[in-house]
Design a protein around this nucleic acid. Structure first.
Lengths: 336, 336
DNA sequence: GTGAAAGCGCTAACAA
DNA sequence: TTGTTAGCGCTTTCAC
């Protein structure tokens, strides 16, 4: 454990006071002669000195730490992406992330929160795997907090979420731009918040292009591969059949592919297919599935941006919008 | 910020000394009358007192924190699973995880390490996304550290890895138990450590069952869906063709499905298929892919177990095995 | 230009 | 049974 050296050791070795060492090592030694500074740096290096952040935090009352609570870190790319974005910006500001995964255990969530408060985290980023409405655990109000991919209608806590509406719109527009006019939307049930928005975006885009919305072209099925399979079989029997299928998510698209293959229809030549979520399987499908990505990374980034603002200036907390919607980018592959 | 109360506030309110408060709140107040204890608890509750862990850590010289460095938190289920297992056990011991994702940035990795040392983490869990040989960054020797899913042949740092050999063996045995004798192994290239072991396990299992290993049944293709596709087309032209296809990973199996469908062969009736890795897509494939899971969670658990041992008793570090192999469980679905 | 010393909030040895 | 007090390693004010 070479890093046991402390500031007084460095001071002693450099033959200066701890004040000087502190000043120099923290880059606030402008008034100290280069020569002295060098002695300090050298001493620190020789001792392999690593300042004790715990002591520093205690003194400065800044933990340089942000808490991150996720419900499911492992089930998909979501939490990872958010953490990645969050960490990157946090890191740039010298902060590190304390991560706790709760697996929906409310009790654990509560104590995790408490643990984080005890460690004096500067803020909390609370993120859920799939976009939905939540009930924020109690005691989340006495410290900066941002919700990611979820929001609580009963509390004023700011949330950063994907712009699913615009996503649905963009996806549809993408298809329109390719010349499609009969575009089906394979909707999923049970109806998640996100699905509803995506559908609304689809309608909006069609209307904006003066394409009439036909209820026939909006089958509702379980949002799984077999749902997509069924929907496709149904849709392709319409006269005329749609030329493009927009799926509420990538899983559904998987079943769509299956059905289309059975019908001997080629993607994208005979019919174009679009998914949503950019799951990993999207890139593996043949042909690669064109889809809408969820802005995990960007949301993580934004959340930290807000959090840092809030902790730097508590007054500002009031000025953070209740909902911040981040656009979903199109991921172009070969299915359109 | 209600939690600004400090121990002296609690003491004052309960009309006792800080010592008493400390003792009571830390459960070491057996010699203190219940009555006094209650006063303390009440005072703490009223003030919504949250002990400052930073101060406590500084004093006790225990950060109650473990560092976790990953290379890719988002590309697959790996890092998440490890973190989940690690966090769970760490939590049970009152520890929290400080997580940094490096995206293979060596410089970042180095400074992350330094940051963690400064925060006096009790140990470091270093994990990589895909099982491989690595070069541990410098300065990782002065603090308990465990490698997960990778190892460094040039250093004595203990590693926890999946038992790919046994996994290959188990997968093969599973197929043998189903009555298969002509079992192909679709090998992947470039040859990763894991692939090599899986293949070796396959050979071992066949030999153990007196089934001869035929080189014809071990095509080597890129480990992607199209690799699996090619391999299947080739394999099914052999006479007689194999009755079971063991794929080096799930991606390959995806292509296998594709090819089999084109050949109008049914899974598992005409030919059984097994994958490896239990990627998310495995459960979505139709029929569901039987595959071998990587023991992410278990590895995370084991790593923390070791880390806690090491930090509790540095002497013991010597007794931790260089390689700990964790078995991969069979995930039975419908493709076998 | 540099140093002495107070104090961040806590624990624990020692006293009473 | 409970209180006083000395640090843990650092930052920072104020003095020299």
């Amino acid at each position: 454990m070479a890093q046991r050296a402390k500031i007084s050791d460095v001071a002693e070795r450099a033959k200066v006071s701890v004040t000087t060492v502190s000043l120099v090592l923290n880059g606030r030694g402008e008034q100290i002669p280069k020569e002295t500074q060098n002695r300090v740096f050298q001493a620190a290096a020789q001792l392999n000195y690593q300042p004790n952040e715990l002591a520093r935090s205690l003194k400065t009352n800044q933990s340089m730490t942000i808490g991150c609570i996720t419900d499911h870190i492992v089930s998909g790319p979501h939490a990872g992406g958010v953490i990645m974005g969050a960490q990157e910006l946090a890191w740039a500001q010298g902060r590190l992330l304390l991560v706790v995964n709760t697996e929906d255990d409310a009790e654990l969530e509560q104590s995790a929160l408490e643990m984080m408060k005890r460690r004096r985290v500067e803020g909390i980023l609370y993120t859920t795997d799939s976009m939905h409405v939540i009930q924020v655990p109690a005691g989340l109000t006495d410290l900066p907090i941002i919700l990611v991919n979820c929001y609580d209608p009963h509390s004023p806590i700011p949330a950063v979420i994907p712009d699913e509406f615009k996503g649905g719109e963009t996806a549809t527009q993408t298809l329109i731009d390719e010349g499609h006019r009969r575009i089906a939307f394979i909707d999923g049930t049970p109806p998640l918040e996100a699905n509803i928005e995506r559908l609304a975006g689809y309608r909006a885009a069609l209307e904006a292009s003066q394409v009439s919305v036909e209820q026939d072209l909006i089958p509702v099925v379980p949002w799984t591969p077999s749902g997509g399979y069924q929907a496709t079989k149904y849709l392709m029997e319409l006269t005329p059949p749609p030329t493009a299928l927009l799926c509420v998510n990538d899983w559904v698209a998987l079943g769509v592919y299956e059905a289309l293959k059975e019908l001997n229809l080629r993607i994208p030549d005979d019919v174009a297919v679009m998914g949503y979520d950019d799951q990993r399987l999207a890139s593996l499908m043949m042909p690669g599935l064109t889809t809408m990505a969820l802005p995990h990374y960007q949301m993580g980034l934004k959340a930290i941006e807000y959090l840092m603002e809030m902790s730097a200036n508590p007054e500002k907390s009031k000025s953070i919008p209740y909902l911040t919607k981040i656009p979903c980018p199109v991921i172009r592959r070969e299915s359109v």
